[in-house]
Design a protein around this nucleic acid. Structure first.
Length: 300
DNA sequence: GACACGTGGAA
DNA sequence: TTTCCAAGTGT
């Protein structure tokens, strides 16, 4: 049971100040403008998975100028999507976005579907992204649980500094309970709570002085107790297969012509790990092996 | 449920 | 310099 429900605080007392704050302080992001459309919303959601807004902005603009509709992307080679992805990281997202564009073109007449279940069936779209697109692009009522919203709810409602590592049933239940009744207001609430987590109720150095619900925040009222339990597993990177994959793919992105084995071998000393990383990229469909020990981004 | 999966800026 | 973190998904 959360502090919010145990004190019987009506959600409406949270909705108005949070949505009001959002109307005053929301960033003017291109995917929030009407001209972005559902496709723009969807592209931005793929790019923003684990990647900061500041790095997404320029790539998003180039992407939408080149592929303004799903069918435009679907008609191009998947390797071009990987190349245009640049250094955003997790390039499989580019491949999945390309696959989603193909599915939209084939199954949905070229229009991003509005139904949650149809969105969820597309490659690269999971629970969060399906809810986000349905909510932000189509104004529907969904619990949109990303890392920002989960942190806001953990603090404001549950009185703890950080949410659990993985989304729990209790979090989903709480998020549904806090959702405004009316569709459009629920969609604004989703965007507003996300923005609050991104700008004010941040993971570190939160700024309660600028928070519209600081007076109702269970964590703050409890004296902002520090997170209990094991520290988060720090993701090591140097020396991992991921780093090797990143270097290999960087070489392939830079070259339109097929790349030789020697060119790829030059990015990593250790041959066993290097081969394993390259095999992994091929298995993932990010790299296409050619005759004569040459490689390129996939043509499809 | 645990892990793999990129990248770069900030503290 | 090291660690943490950023609008997650798929296996």
């Amino acid at each position: 049971m959360t502090a919010m429900t145990s004190t019987h605080t009506p959600p409406a007392s949270l909705h108005t100040p949070v949505i009001g704050w959002f109307e005053q302080h929301a960033r003017d992001l291109p995917w929030r403008r009407p001209e972005a459309g559902a496709w723009g919303v969807m592209v931005s959601e793929f790019m923003l998975q684990q990647t900061p807004v500041s790095r997404v902005l320029p790539v998003y603009e180039q992407w939408m100028a080149r592929w303004p509709r799903p069918a435009d992307l679907a008609a191009d080679a998947p390797g071009e999507a990987v190349r245009a992805w640049g250094r955003l990281g997790y390039p499989r997202r580019a491949l999945r976005l390309h696959g989603a564009a193909q599915a939209i073109t084939e199954r949905h007449g070229g229009d991003v579907p509005s139904e949650h279940g149809q969105l969820l069936a597309l490659p690269g779209i999971g629970e969060y992204t399906a809810a986000a697109v349905a909510s932000f692009a189509y104004g529907q009522r969904h619990a949109v649980l990303d890392t920002n919203v989960r942190r806001v709810f953990a603090r404001a409602a549950s009185g703890i500094q950080y949410p659990p590592n993985a989304t729990t049933a209790a979090e989903r239940k709480l998020a549904r309970a806090l959702l405004p009744e009316e569709d459009g207001r629920a969609a604004r609430w989703a965007a507003a709570t996300m923005e609050l987590g991104a700008l004010v109720c941040t993971a570190k150095n939160e700024d309660c002085g600028r928070c519209p619900i600081s007076g109702q925040c269970a964590w703050r009222l409890a004296g902002k107790p520090a997170h209990q339990g094991a520290p988060r597993r720090g993701q090591t990177y140097a020396g991992t297969d991921r780093q090797v994959r990143g270097r290999l793919l960087a070489v392939l992105r830079e070259s339109v012509a097929p790349v030789t084995q020697a060119a790829l071998d030059s990015v990593w000393e250790e041959p066993v790990q290097r081969a394993r990383a390259l095999d992994g990229l091929v298995a993932d469909g990010l790299v296409e092996p050619l005759a004569g020990a040459r490689y390129r981004l996939p043509l499809g």
